[in-house]
Deep mutational scan, measured.
Amino acid sequence: MASQGTKRSYEQMETDGERQNATEIRASVGKMIGGIGRFYIQMCTELKLSDYEGRLIQNSLTIERMVLSAFDERRNKYLEEHPSAGKDPKKTGGPIYRRVNGKWMRELILYDKEEIRRIWRQANNGDDATAGLTHMMIWHSNLNDATYQRTRALVRTGMDPRMCSLMQGSTLPRRSGAAGAAVKGVGTMVMELVRMIKRGINDRNFWRGENGRKTRIAYERMCNILKGKFQTAAQKAMMDQVRESRNPGNAEFEDLTFLARSALILRGSVAHKSCLPACVYGPAVASGYDFEREGYSLVGIDPFRLLQNSQVYSLIRPNENPAHKSQLVWMACHSAAFEDLRVLSFIKGTKVLPRGKLSTRGVQIASNENMETMESSTLELRSRYWAIRTRSGGNTNQQRASAGQISIQPTFSVQRNLPFDRTTIMAAFNGNTEGRTSDMRTEIIRMMESARPEDVSFQGRGVFELSDEKAASPIVPSFDMSNEGSYFFGDNAEEYDN
C-alpha cells in the first residue's frame, strides 16, 4: 500500500469516517454492505422474486439502478423543472426478469421514488447511507470498465484509444464523492478537466460571474484530485501550473494530454476495490451473516471469500459463452479491467482472455432483445487465490505491452514486471518541450526514458491461498515475461453508450 500519510484510507472515504482504527473501519464497511443486503432482500420480497430470480444479476442491476435514481437529487430536480413526455419524475423502474413456464419473461416495473427511498433508509437504520449508494455506483463503473473500451470518449477529448488503461471510473457520476474520486484513473480526471476547458473556450461566460466562481472551485478541486494521483514531483508541479492558470485554454489542454500520456509509464495511484452486485450481499445477509459484527474490507480476502460461497446467475444470449460472461463479471467484481492478464489468470486459476476474444456482450439486456431465446446460467466467480488490492500504480518500471492497449494499471499487489510499449508511448511525445512547463516536461520525458521494462514492481508481494486469511504465506508467482498482458488488445469491444 502506498503510505497513507495525511490521506484517509478508502474504507474511511467509503464510510465518510473520520480517523478510525482498522477494526472500526471493518465494522463501518460491514455496516454499509449489510445495509445493501437488507435493502436487496426487501426489494425481492416487494417484487415477489423467487430465490433464483433474486440471484439473477440482471435483476440486481435494475434494483441497484432504481435506488441510485431515487437518490439522484440533481436529476430529480431537473426532471421536475423540465417535464418530458412519458417520463414521470417521481417514478423509477426498469426490467425485471421472471421464469414463467420454463421461459424467461421481461416485466417492466415502476415504483415511486419516495417508496424506494423509504425501503433503502429502513434497511440502513434510517440513514441515507450515501456510502452504500456510492458502492453500487463503483460496481456499475467497474462493470462498464470491463465491458467497454471507451474509444470515442478518448478520441473526443484528444487522447489515444490505446490509453484505455487510464480510464478507470470514466462512467462514474460526478456525485460519487471521495470514494469515487479515489477509483478514477488519470485519464478519467484528464477527460473531465478537458471537457471543462473546452467549454470555457467555447463559452465566454463559463468562468464568469457567480456560476463561474463555482465552476472555478470545481476545476481547482479536480486538479488537486489529479495532482494527488501522480507520484513524481515534476508531474505534480505541472498540475500546479494547470490549476493556477488564470484562464484555462489550449496550453492547459496540451499540458493535460501530455500528463495523461506520461501516466502510461509514470503511473498514478488509483484505488481498486472489489464492489459486488447487491444480489451477492442480499443472500449472505439472508443466511444470517452479520457483516457489521464480522467486519468487512473491500481490499482484502473478504470479497473473494464471499464470491467463493455465492451463487449468481445471468441471462445468456443464444451465441454467448457462459464462461466468457463469467470472466467479464469476475473482472468487474475485482475492479480488474486494466490489470495484467498474466496476473489475473494466476489468481483466477483459469486463463483470462483479452476482451476481443470473449464471445459475450454486456450483462444488460436491451429492451428490444428477444426473450424467447434467452437461457440462463451460473456465473463462475470463484478464484484459485486471493491478493491484496493496490492503491498505487506500482513502481515506475515497465515491460512490453500489446498493440491495442499500451500499458496497464495494476489492481493487485503482486510481484511482476509491468508491461508497456515504450516505443509507441515515446513516439507520441513530439519533443515539444517549450513553453512555461518546459523544464517539467524535459524531466518527465527523462524519467520515462530511463524506466526499464525488466524491473520488478511490488517486490516480494504474492497471492494467498483462500485458507490464508491473515495473509501469512505469500506465494510469489513467476510470469512468462514475453507473454501478452493487455485486456483490450487489438480490440473490438462495443462502445459504451450512456
Rank of each mutant, 00 (worst) to 15 (best):
365 I>T: 13
220 E>N: 09
485 G>A: 09
53 E>G: 08
311 Q>C: 11
89 P>Q: 06
473 S>R: 13
311 Q>S: 12
27 A>G: 07
115 E>Y: 09
324 H>A: 14
78 Y>M: 07
466 L>T: 02
236 K>N: 12
162 R>E: 03
373 T>Y: 07
409 Q>D: 02
344 L>H: 03
267 R>G: 10
136 M>G: 00
267 R>N: 06
63 I>K: 11
127 D>E: 06
153 A>E: 01
111 Y>A: 02
91 K>P: 01
421 D>T: 05
146 A>F: 11
418 L>Q: 07
13 M>R: 09
39 F>P: 00
204 R>M: 06
117 R>I: 14
202 N>L: 05
339 E>W: 04
265 I>M: 12
289 Y>M: 12
354 P>S: 11
82 H>L: 10
35 G>T: 11
433 T>G: 12
246 R>T: 11
482 S>W: 06
491 D>I: 04
226 L>G: 01
175 R>P: 04
270 V>N: 12
329 V>E: 06
151 T>D: 03
82 H>A: 14
349 G>V: 09
203 D>Q: 06
255 D>N: 13
454 E>N: 14
145 D>M: 08
118 R>P: 05
219 Y>V: 08
234 A>K: 07
303 P>E: 03
352 V>P: 00
340 D>W: 05
32 M>R: 03
259 L>F: 03
462 G>N: 03
349 G>Q: 07
55 R>H: 07
473 S>M: 05
423 T>K: 04
340 D>C: 05
77 K>T: 12
12 Q>W: 01
347 I>V: 15
319 N>E: 00
48 K>Q: 12
109 I>M: 13
488 F>K: 04
379 L>M: 15
128 D>Y: 13
183 V>R: 01
253 F>C: 07
187 G>D: 08
260 A>I: 01
140 H>Q: 14
385 Y>F: 14
389 R>P: 02
89 P>N: 08
285 V>L: 15
403 A>Y: 00
407 S>H: 03
19 R>Y: 00
443 E>G: 09
405 Q>W: 01
36 I>N: 10
77 K>C: 04
80 E>L: 13
152 R>L: 07
130 T>M: 07
424 T>N: 12
300 G>V: 05
102 G>D: 09
326 S>D: 04
147 T>H: 09
212 G>V: 07
